[in-house]
Computed example of a mutant assay.
Amino acid sequence: MAAALWSDLKGQVAKMSGTHLRTLLQDQARNDSMFVQSGQIVLDYCRQKVDTETMSKLFELADKAGVEQKKTKMFAGEKINETEGRAVLHPALRAPRDAAISVDGQNVVPEVWKVLDAMKGFSDKVRSGEWKGHTGKALTDVVCIGIGGSYLGVEFVYEALKTCPEAAAAANGRKLRFLANVDPIDVKRALEGLNAETTLVVIISKTFTTAETMLNAKTVKAWLVKELGSEDCVAKHVVACSTALDKTKAFGIDSNNVFGFWDWVGGRFSVWSAVGVLALSLQYGFGTVNQFLEGGHAMDEHFQKASAKENLPLILGLLDVWNGSLLGYEGVAILPYCQALLRFVPHIQQLDMESRALWKSPFR
């Protein structure tokens, strides 16, 4: 039983706590077993305070706790988010067009691709200059208005792609900015140096009622109307990621330029939805963003099919349980050496924080 294994693992704590990491690193066979790879992603966890016996017990714990069964339920669209009564299907957002993933008996992949195709079509028109602003000028600058998951993940990927040669070339002459704080200074910073004639605004709010987002949206709308001299400019300069078509229409947004997402995507994962894809496609082109989606799908496949000892997400999860719940470490440092990942930490912090808030331990 999982409870018995949990108690057994507690017995490993004294042994590992009293063993210096230098001693563990002298065992080359141990070190080699803790070097695993999926595609171009390498995980080397030999500097964790575990030996092969500890890892064997952790893998057994995962087995007895039913991780495989829970994984199957997740990819099958079952409502494993018990707190909110929702499916957890961000993998559907990056699934191939011919995949079949169901929620409540309905394959959601065709609807996902309907939105992806719409975003590709719109972003292609904006980037080519076919879609023009109120005064007939091409739109080269984008301001995204959102908060939390509607901001952190998108900014992380935006920053990460800045130094990718292919993405940088695609973004030449374009700007992407984010407005997430209701502080007027953030509004000023987001709009500084922008020309309303060439600016497109993306409002990200599923219900179109999020207080901070809507206050900023109204502020930027007022700026557009003042600079362009007409309320009619909104339809050409403002689009939305939302499901509240009545509210977006009342705001002045063309319903054809409202891109939806679904309840089975938690906000912290929404970078994979219209929330991330639209803004990033406008900046870098849909082709670059599609590579991002394909990379996510490759890791989904790995998580589904790889054995426990080769499964990167599972190993990282087990080490988190070991360090936090058994060794009692209260914090974890994420230290990206690559400057392009400067916004990775806030994104991961939100993923971790919100996932833990919804997580129920099977062991306690």
Rank of each mutant, 00 (worst) to 15 (best):
W272G: 00
E197H: 01
S123Q: 01
M119E: 01
K137Q: 14
V154L: 14
D44M: 08
S7M: 07
R364E: 08
E231F: 04
S270H: 02
V143Q: 03
E330V: 11
K247Y: 01
A29Y: 02
W6V: 07
F75M: 05
I145S: 04
S230K: 12
L58F: 10
V201T: 03
G193C: 11
A279D: 06
R97S: 04
A100S: 15
L200Y: 06
L116P: 03
M1D: 10
L194I: 06
D98M: 06
S255K: 02
L43D: 15
V108T: 03
V157L: 15
K114W: 01
I147T: 13
R97C: 05
D246W: 00
R22C: 04
G287S: 08
V271L: 14
G149Y: 00
L351W: 08
G229F: 00
D141Q: 02
I41G: 06
K57R: 14
L25N: 12
M299N: 02
L25D: 13
G173C: 12
V67N: 06
L316N: 11
N172F: 06
M74I: 15
N181D: 12
N107V: 09
G133T: 07
L194Q: 03
Q48L: 02
S205T: 04
V258D: 00
L293D: 08
R94S: 03
D117C: 06
K15P: 00
I253R: 00
F59W: 13
E60L: 13
R364H: 07
K15I: 14
L351I: 13
S242A: 13
E159R: 15
K137F: 08
R189T: 11
F303W: 11
A168R: 13
K71L: 13
K226L: 03
E231G: 02
K206D: 02
C338W: 07
S230W: 10
Q40G: 12
W6S: 15
K114T: 00
N172G: 13
G260L: 09
F208S: 01
P165M: 15
A279Y: 04
Y284D: 10
T199S: 07
T54W: 05
A65Y: 11
G266Y: 06
S242G: 05
F269M: 10
I101K: 03
A190H: 06
A118T: 00
L228H: 00
